[in-house]
Nucleic acid binder design. Structure first.
Length: 268
DNA sequence: CTTTCAGCCTGACGGC
DNA sequence: TGCCGTCAGGCTGAAA
């Protein structure tokens, strides 16, 4: 499942083949994604140059001469540069042929992703909180925005208005590293603890981005899902297993419809 | 305003 | 072996 580090890795991976190139053609095989793909996408963007690629939250933004395309990988999406003769796989929904011969394919079995075109700003980006790795995101912000709120701390840090790009995996891991129970009321945590938490969120995301290169290589080699996190995850997906710190049994609960694993002894 | 929750979708997995 | 039910998960928009 693509989290922010995978999106960042994807961006770095496809950028050399895409940036500065003219879009020769776009073919949409399945336009029924999270939001319908614009039926006129091809005629709207063909002939335009991709001037710049960037990331905002878990969105990938391709800047063109007259607008931009916003891509989200959802739960199961991927973007990769393929050989021109490579066979179309099931769930390859969109392909984009560039003037340098590069072929980009968007693959997404669950179709939670999107590929949107807009001449102006994208609605999806309008009300997003700061990037987790920027200085605008810190313990101070978490502390101030949480006062008098009773939502649990885990859904709080996964709220895109508070900070973007913190998915279930990294929220769980950062809370473990910070020794904070995921079901603690966000409004009761001290500035000191939020400073700790913000630091750990940055830490786990930055570490995953560094390892993202491994993810991409594995992916290109056709090995499927990345292996890096299974070795580094302390709590995510480990309900009922022993805590790596105290050997106590990890507990799994639901918070905001998402499974949340934590150590009742290490996290308070 | 805050909070909760259904729904989108397919593949993986467990039980029988 | 295969069928069926359940689950996973980001994000939005509606309901409470």
């Amino acid at each position: 499942m693509p989290e922010l580090p995978e999106v960042e890795t994807t961006l770095r991976g496809i950028e050399p083949a895409i940036a500065g190139q003219v879009i020769n053609s776009i073919r949409v095989h399945q336009g029924s994604l999270r939001w319908p793909v614009n039926p006129n996408l091809a005629q709207l963007v063909e002939g335009q140059t991709v001037t710049h690629l960037s990331r905002r939250a878990k969105y990938l933004l391709m800047q063109l001469d007259q607008g931009s395309m916003l891509v989200h990988l959802g739960m199961s999406g991927s973007l990769r540069i393929v050989q021109p003769n490579e066979e179309l796989r099931k769930h390859d929904h969109i392909e984009m042929q560039m003037s340098n011969g590069s072929l980009l394919r968007f693959h997404d079995p669950r179709r939670f992703g999107c590929w949107l075109w807009s001449e102006g700003p994208h609605q999806q980006l309008a009300h997003l909180g700061p990037e987790p790795l920027s200085d605008d995101f810190n313990g101070q912000r978490l502390y101030q925005l949480s006062r008098r709120r009773k939502v649990a701390v885990k859904p709080f840090i996964m709220d895109n208005k508070i900070v973007v790009g913190v998915g279930n995996i990294y929220a769980s891991e950062a809370l473990f590293r910070s020794g904070i129970r995921p079901d603690r009321a966000s409004g009761n945590l001290s500035l000191r603890r939020y400073t700790e938490l913000a630091g750990h969120i940055k830490e786990v995301l930055a570490a995953a981005i560094v390892q993202g290169g491994t993810t991409l290589r594995d992916f290109v080699n056709g090995n499927g899902e990345p292996g890096y996190f299974q070795q580094t995850l302390a709590v995510y997906g480990r309900g009922d297993e022993p805590c790596i710190a105290c050997a106590g049994r990890l507990k799994e609960i639901k918070l905001g419809q998402r499974s949340s694993v934590f150590c009742p002894r290490c996290q308070r």
